Amino acid sequence: MNAKMDTNDACDLRFGQVGIACVRVRRVDAAALCDELERRVRAAPQMFARAAVVLDLSHLLDLPDDGAVDALLEAVRSAGMLPVGLAYGTSETEALAKRMGLPLIAKFRAAYEPAAGGPAADAPTPRAEPAAPQPEPILSAPAPGSMQGAQHHVGSVRSGQQIYARDRDLIVTGAVANGAEVIADGNIHIYGGLRGRAMAGAQGDAKARIFVSDFRAELVAIAGQYRVFEQIPDDLEGQSVQCWLEGEKLLIAKL
C-alpha cells in the first residue's frame, strides 16, 4: 500500500542515479592507500576532491578486522574523499558494514563478486578489440542486443546537470558543459563539444564506446575504466574522437 502524500511531511525520500566512485582495496595498508588517493586528488581535484566513494574489499584474501577497516576509511577521508559505504560482498561483509554503521552498495557486485566457495577473484578482463580500428561514422556503432532504443537529449547539458540513459545508448545534440555529466549503459554520441564528463557502459559493458564531435573533456570512462584530463593533448583538443576499451586500457583516437 502506498503511503499517503502529506504536504506537511518533513522531507521527500527518493532513490535516484548518483555518481559514486569505487576504491578497490588490493592490500590492507592504510598509509599506502592514503598516499595513492592523495595523488589522484592532486591530479584531478575537480573530479576527486570530496568525491563520494565506496570501499570494495572483495579482492582481499581475508576480510580485515574492524580496526583495519576503520583505518582504511580514515585513510580515504584524509586523502580528501568521503567514504559512503562498502561494496556488496559476502555475508561477512554485510555483518562488517552493520558494525561500522555503513550501507552496502549493491551496484558494484556484478563487476567484483568473488568466485563461489573461494577467495575473491580478479575482475574478468574484457575481450580486447582490434588495436587500430578504422575510423567510422558516429552512428555506426550498434547498441548491444539487450539495449532499448537510444535516448535523445536535444540541446546543451548545463554545468551541474546529469543525464543518464538506463539500458540504452545516449545521443546528445548539443554541448556538455564543464561540471556536467552524461552517463549511459550503452554508447554515448555527443554532437557538440564535450567539456564535462562522459561515462559509457555504466553497468559494465566493456564494448561500449564514446563518440564526440568536439573533444575537450574533463573525464571519459567506459565500464569503470577512466581517463582524467587536466590538459587535453594537442592532437585531440577540439577534434572528433572515439573512445573504447582495449583490455583494461581506455584508448582515444581521432575519427
Rank of each mutant, 00 (worst) to 15 (best):
M1C: 11
A3I: 06
A3Y: 09
M5N: 14
N8R: 15
A10W: 06
C11P: 09
D12S: 11
D12Y: 04
D12G: 08
R14V: 07
Q17R: 12
V18D: 14
V18G: 15
G19L: 14
A21I: 03
R24Y: 02
V25H: 03
V28T: 07
A30P: 08
A31C: 07
A31Q: 13
A32N: 07
L33R: 01
L33D: 08
L33Q: 05
C34L: 04
E36D: 12
V41E: 12
A43Y: 01
A43C: 07
M47D: 15
F48S: 08
R50C: 12
A51W: 02
A51G: 09
L57S: 04
L57V: 03
L57E: 07
S58N: 14
H59K: 11
H59V: 03
P64T: 06
D65G: 08
L72R: 03
E74I: 01
A75E: 08
R77M: 08
R77I: 02
R77C: 10
A79S: 11
M81D: 10
P83C: 04
V84T: 12
G85S: 07
L86Y: 02
Y88Q: 15
Y88M: 14
G89E: 05
T90S: 14
S91T: 13
T93V: 10
A95V: 05
L96V: 01
L102R: 07
L102Q: 10
L102Y: 05
P103G: 06
P103D: 05
L104D: 07
F108V: 08
A115Y: 05
A115H: 07
P119R: 08
P119Y: 03
A121H: 09
A121V: 14
A123L: 10
T125P: 12
R127I: 07
R127V: 10
R127H: 10
A131T: 10
P133K: 02
Q134N: 14
P135L: 05
E136A: 14
P137W: 01
P142C: 03
P142E: 08
P142H: 05
S146Q: 12
M147P: 09
M147V: 09
Q148W: 08
A150Y: 01
H152T: 10
V154I: 12
G155F: 03
S156K: 12
S156V: 12
S156Q: 15
V157H: 02
R158N: 14
Q162N: 10
A165S: 12
D167F: 01
V172N: 04
T173W: 00
T173S: 15
G174E: 05
A175I: 00
V176W: 01
V176C: 04
A180E: 06
A180M: 03
V182P: 09
A184S: 13
G186F: 01
I188E: 04
Y191N: 11
L194F: 04
G196D: 11
R197M: 13
M199W: 03
M199V: 05
M199C: 14
D205T: 04
K207T: 12
I210R: 00
S213M: 13
D214V: 00
E218N: 05
L219E: 13
A221G: 11
A221Y: 01
A223F: 00
G224Y: 00
G224N: 03
Y226S: 15
R227Y: 01
Q231W: 01
G238C: 04
Q239A: 12
S240N: 09
S240H: 06
V241Y: 00
C243V: 07
W244F: 09
L245A: 06
G247W: 02
E248W: 06
L251F: 07
I252L: 07
A253G: 11
